[in-house]
Amino acid sequence: MATRAPNLSSHLLYRSILSKPPTAAGFPKILHQHHLSSPYYSSAFPTEPPYPPTESEILSAALSRVLDHGFTSRALSLGATDAGYLEVSANLFPRREFEIVLYHLVRERMRLGERVQFAEEGGGRTVGARRLGVGEKIQSLVMGRLRANVEVGVQGRWGEAIALMAVPSNVPPSLQELARLADEIWYLSGDTSVDGSWYTKRASLASVYAASEVFMTQDQSTDYKDTEQFVEDRLRDVQTVGSWIGNTVEWVGYTGWAGVNLLRSKGFRI
């Protein structure tokens, strides 16, 4: 008895150390500072990778397990094993399965530029030979990003991911990532306007994207034809509303100045 007791207790101690998710200040900090946005983007200065190598390996291995096991802790543990680490390394990720979702979102956002390329830039998957308008580019970028879920093999489980993103504590990082995706799409489409429309453009695109993503989880059509139609329709709606507002503002401004000039011509000192 006396000889066995230390062994058993050490086993228990060991288990209690490992089974607790790491809540010490160090861990989450190390993990999550990578998701910070980097203001002042510049090609002249190197940018840090969003995930350190170890985490990247585990998470991308976990992603390939998602089709079978869903966005679950199980997939994360299997991913750790596949990448050649101990199963308990899954404890590295305090947000557990949501971390897989976030990793997928970040990775696909950063790969979008390679996935969808336009004719004038040359190379890659070109869309048509003529110059595309910004609207068409936006549409093919949105579809390209949606199809990435299919190509990575997580589309069948994407409903689970949406449910995870809707968990209250996961909402802020999910929205942030959605905003970055919208910004990335506008950037890749070649839009360079930096005026008051900057915010409305991104907000409306983000809402269209989120709606399309939900629609796509229910889409049974061949090659997601229905989703494509849905995206096209929603983008057209947004464009119509946007141009209506733009025209109204322009008309009010024009009429206002015409009135001021009329008064000036009558001798008012304004």
Binding site: T47, P49, V106, R107, M110, R111
Partner: peptide, 10 residues
């Protein structure tokens, strides 16, 4: 940042 063949960010 470089996307390797398997697409992981390393």
């Amino acid at each position: 940042v470089q996307s390797t063949d398997n697409g992981s960010l390393q």
